[in-house]
Design a protein around this nucleic acid. Structure first.
Lengths: 190, 190
DNA sequence: ACCTGAACACCGTTCAAGT
DNA sequence: ACCTGAACACCGTTCAAGT
């Protein structure tokens, strides 16, 4: 709103424009040169704000994850898992962005926090189980979004696309249901 | 062994060299130009054998998955999951290769077959559960290999690396254990 | 059938220099 | 403090032409 007095762009603004470009053109077309052009700036200018493209993508990843809503107290594991998935689905190629910078991050801690809080009452391996759920959600969503991207120039019919979407949802529910049952059983004892 | 009489290279041979390059330099450095140089050929020559780089990577992906051993009859779900993971870990960036071409494949059917066979006696949603397990394994392994790659130029100590490896194994076991328990419970009836 | 050579339209990144 | 301009060392892909 209030234009910055010093310089034309700051990190936060650039991240927002990058996210917009991501949604419009996808990760393969989110290049430093295109982003610079969108900002009416030379590509080299971006390197004053970010160390590298990896650094920029990691910042975009953090922004995507930051949007995960705080869980309500009574939240089940499946609610938390859906919240993470929805944050990834909110942006084109969101899962791939998060995955590609997960190496630099100590683990996308926002997502892990939310999942941990939803684990059945403090089972001792909640940390490990939360990481496993996150890995499932990331794998699931990456595959989904990869297919969405591929469909653009495929021969897939609209009917097939609808089937795929329904199947994706079923696979997600099945996966989380299995994990939840396993977790409940382990907690209930025996 | 017997050198081909016609032409210098065929698809199968090129895929092998690509896999070798993958192991030595990683996916980001597996370029058409480097692969061509390794084959003592111009980059454009590769386009007689493959439609595109995507096509080549998909073929490499198939080769990686083909190495999953046939499951023994008494195989548990965790055995099948380990077999898939090990096939991915057998090559640098293996999981990312498989993920990136999963959109073009009808689903990496070799991995799905093996997982399906290991599902508890024909539960009706075995198909969905197998897909869920595959997505977990892919997410897990991609994250692992991403971190391995990042460590090359990180400040991570060897001790930290050992800890990470142990933690990765624990997360994998926890994830599969949860899913197995959930599947067993659902099958046993309640 | 299989490959070369040259070109096209791009990349990420660095760095001196400007304001 | 923030950005330009030019350069470096690359990419994937196409296509006429060679053998």
């Amino acid at each position: 709103m209030t234009p910055a007095r010093t310089g034309r762009h700051d990190r936060e603004h650039i991240i927002g424009v990058a996210l917009d470009l991501l949604d419009r053109y996808g990760l393969p077309d989110l290049t430093m040169r295109r982003l610079a052009a969108e900002l009416d700036v030379q590509a080299s200018a971006l390197y004053w704000h970010f160390d590298s493209k990896q650094d920029l993508i990691a910042a975009v990843s953090d922004r995507i994850m930051a949007r995960i809503p705080d869980p309500v107290d009574s939240a089940e594991l499946i609610d938390a898992a859906r919240a993470v998935r929805d944050a990834l689905l909110a942006h084109r190629d969101g899962a791939e962005v998060v995955m590609s910078s997960a190496a630099l991050r100590p683990g996308p801690s926002r997502a892990l926090d939310v999942l941990r809080q939803a684990m059945p009452s403090h089972r001792e391996d909640g940390e490990l189980a939360a990481a496993a759920v996150l890995q499932f959600v990331l794998g699931h969503t990456t595959l989904m979004q990869q297919r969405m991207h591929g469909e653009s120039y495929g021969a897939a019919s609209t009917a097939a696309t609808l089937d795929d979407t329904a199947r994706d949802a079923a696979v997600f529910e099945t996966g989380i249901a299995l994990i939840s049952r396993g977790a409940a059983r382990a907690t209930a004892g025996r």
